[in-house]
Amino acid sequence: MTNSRTKFQKKFDGFLSKLLLIIITVVSLYPFYSLLIMSTHTNAEVISRLNLLPGKALLDNIKVILKAGFLRSYWNSFYVAMLSSFIRVFVSAMAGYALAIYRFRGRSACATIVLLTMMVPFNVSLVGFLIEMNTFHLTGTMWPLIISCTSSSMGVYLLMSTMQDTVPLQIVESARIDGAGEFSIFLRFGIPLSKAPLTTLFLLSFIASWNNFMNALIFINKREQYTVPMAIFTFGDQFSSEYGARMLALVLATFPILIIYIFNSKHFVSGITAGAIKS
């Protein structure tokens, strides 16, 4: 009797936890669904009632966002995110490699600086960075957006701690004996051996840059330089009543991130959890 009761209890518990998980997941996903549905409706439909099924205005909405120059913003965002992530990964890899492989005077000082400045938010340097960009005559270009992402020490920390394990010292030693230069050792062994953490860092930087709104708000003031978040934010100024089209723009803004994430979720999980486990 008690045995069957505990069995029932167990089943019930399992059912309850599954139910809760499903509810939470539905809540997590509903806004995405709603976004997708709204993007196929006309403006009047979006603002007059709650729509739960797709409408017929998708093509019209596409026309509106094309007219608004959304493709241009799309390209801008892509360009900024690619370039800044690439520079960031490359530069962080060099620093991480050096801190992991070489034993030099001041190494621990550098490592300490990296660790300490990870705690200093970028916002603290924002005003100084803005004035610096003004003096370099870089405001009004895309460069502030690109540069602001590259100087974060989080990447160096991530690579420093992973490269210690991924790049064996013996390989570096034997390449040196074969007469290879230090930089070519880095390119030929350091980078290929650390593919996984480098990919992770690249993906995380790409998404951070793609989603960055505040910097774009502060540094970009010409329409032809708008990134996707800025384009969507100012969409209201241009087409104040086109909500359906705006939703479509949001769908398009979210889409690349979803694709990147779904196909690389392993890299994400390792990258996101890496910081916590070491500390």
């Binding site: 997941t25 709603s34 603002i47």
Partner: peptide, 25 residues
């Protein structure tokens, strides 16, 4: 599925939530 909101751009989230909390719709 549950990690998706975390990587979605804040601007999308802001607008979706404005819509979900809207008075009329």
């Amino acid at each position: 599925a549950n990690y998706l909101p975390n990587i979605t751009s804040p601007i999308a989230i802001g607008i979706i939530f404005s819509l979900m909390f809207d008075q009329k719709v």
